[in-house]
């Protein structure tokens, strides 16, 4: 009908397409830029010595972040040991039995928890553990991270459990299997891949948290010393080094950031490849 109108629509369409494409490029470009920049800045200070040695006394050049790597592994590992089972079982509760007011409250609380600033969670762990024990500790840091993990794992678990078809539950019930066994031994494993992926992503997420560790794990320049003492962690060491006045520490902060980033990326990619549905799973 109207050639001019049609041409204008076509131009508008092309413009909108270009705009969305640019925004998409900005979004993904940011990740690449961050990765590239950290790799470029961090690579020069990276060496086996850096990974395997303890920090040198303040003022001396060199030294490594071995204690931070071990510390992060311990704190994040313990957080997972505490947070994943609680999150998974709470998710099971919501998916399988969650109809009443209590379930609504739990679901709502989890969603609010997801939005609570992590430094506030750190303060809470401080009040809960550090203050009564009068001591910063790996334990308190792990508890803070576990609190952050629980609502993430919980909601993810609930969602994946809800994806399990009702016919699977019926099949198990019809075999004369008690309900709780059906839930834990049939439904949960059927959703297992998704739940595990979610747990891994939650671990990767808290592995990079700094704020909740400032007044819980606190940091430490010496070798790891049990669960009840202050402990060094990667994000916290990066923070300490980055705000220090020393050029050498700045370089080490970049290298530590590269390590942390590599770890988080590795877990993310692993989790997402894993999530890809394999034969027969009904996600």
């Amino acid at each position: 009908m109207n050639e001019a109108l049609y041409a204008r629509r076509k131009r508008l369409n092309a413009l909108m397409f270009a705009l969305t494409a640019v925004c998409a490029a900005v979004a993904s470009g940011t990740l690449l830029a961050i990765l590239g920049y950290i790799a470029w800045k961090g690579a020069s200070s990276l060496s086996w010595d850096f990974l395997l040695h303890l920090p040198k006394p303040v003022g001396e050049k060199g030294g490594g972040i071995a204690n931070s790597i071990v510390g992060s592994a311990k704190v994040v590992g313990l957080a997972g040991v505490m947070g994943v089972p609680v999150g998974v079982l709470a998710g099971v509760y919501l998916a399988e039995y969650g109809r009443g007011k209590f379930a609504f409250a739990v679901r709502y609380a989890a969603d609010v928890m997801n939005g609570v600033p992590s430094i506030v969670v750190g303060l809470f762990a401080y009040a809960l553990i550090v203050h009564p024990m009068k001591k910063f500790s790996a334990l308190s840091g792990a508890v803070a991270l576990a609190f952050i993990m629980i609502p993430i794992v919980l909601r993810n678990t609930e969602e994946f459990l809800r994806l399990v078809p009702g016919t699977i539950r019926e099949a198990a019930l019809a075999l004369g299997v008690p309900r709780w066994k059906v839930t834990l031994m049939v439904i949960l494993p059927t959703a297992g891949r998704g739940i595990l992926t979610g747990a891994l992503l939650a671990l990767a997420r808290v592995a990079g948290e700094t704020a909740p560790l400032i007044f819980t794990a606190f940091g430490n320049r010496f070798a790891d010393n049990g669960w009840l003492n202050p402990i060094a962690t990667l994000p916290h060491t990066i923070y300490t080094y980055a705000i220090s006045p020393y050029e050498d520490w700045h370089n080490q902060a970049w290298a530590a950031a590269l390590i942390l980033m590599a770890f988080v990326l590795l877990v993310n990619v692993t989790a997402r490849v894993w999530l890809r549905p394999s034969s027969g799973t009904s996600h």
């Binding site: 078809p165 016919t167 699977i168 019926e170 099949a171 198990a172 494993p189 027969g280």
Partner: peptide, 9 residues
Amino acid sequence: FQRPNPFPT
């Protein structure tokens, strides 16, 4: 049941 429902795992 109406539709075959073997346990997927």
